[in-house]
């Protein structure tokens, strides 16, 4: 499967994407900066890259809506999961020292992927980013 590394030598993020692509049942994956919408690396069929701005906006709008819907009025999202007819869509924000968050997006095959396992693997991959 094609993997495109944009900044070409932002090595740690490239490694992160490659690990994400190894999760069983992955169809597409993206590493992006949520605030600016900049795609740092992407892999898969190339469709995810085009939808990056909309994916970032989906996460932002969901945060806004949940902030309004909870009694606390603030929200912190660990994973945003949408089960659609073309797969599981997972958005996983990772806090960075400034700006960000960095968002890992992955689309998984409904038949081949194990959602709980994928979530677990995604957290351990992003845990390594900060360690």
């Amino acid at each position: 499967m094609a993997v495109r590394l944009y900044a070409a030598s932002v090595l740690a993020l490239d490694d992160c994407l490659l690990s994400v692509m190894d999760i069983p049942g992955v169809l597409d994956a993206l590493v992006m900066d949520h605030l600016s919408g900049t795609v740092m690396a992407s892999g898969g069929r190339g469709e995810a890259e085009r939808s990056a701005p909309a994916l970032g906006e989906t996460l932002r709008v969901t945060m806004d809506a949940l902030a309004g819907a909870t009694h606390r009025g603030t929200v912190r999202i660990d994973d945003l999961i949408v089960i659609a007819d073309d797969g599981y869509h997972l958005l996983h924000p990772v806090e960075m020292p400034f700006d960000g968050p960095l968002v890992i997006y992955v689309r998984l095959d409904l038949g081949r992927a194990n959602l709980a396992l994928a979530r677990h693997q995604l957290s351990s991959i992003t845990g390594r980013l900060r360690g």
Binding site: L11, A12, L13, M40, M96
Partner: peptide, 18 residues
Amino acid sequence: HGRAGGYSRAELEFCVAG
């Protein structure tokens, strides 16, 4: 942000790219 060192490689690279 007042953190003395202790940044991971990914955090530093993300920061430089940013």
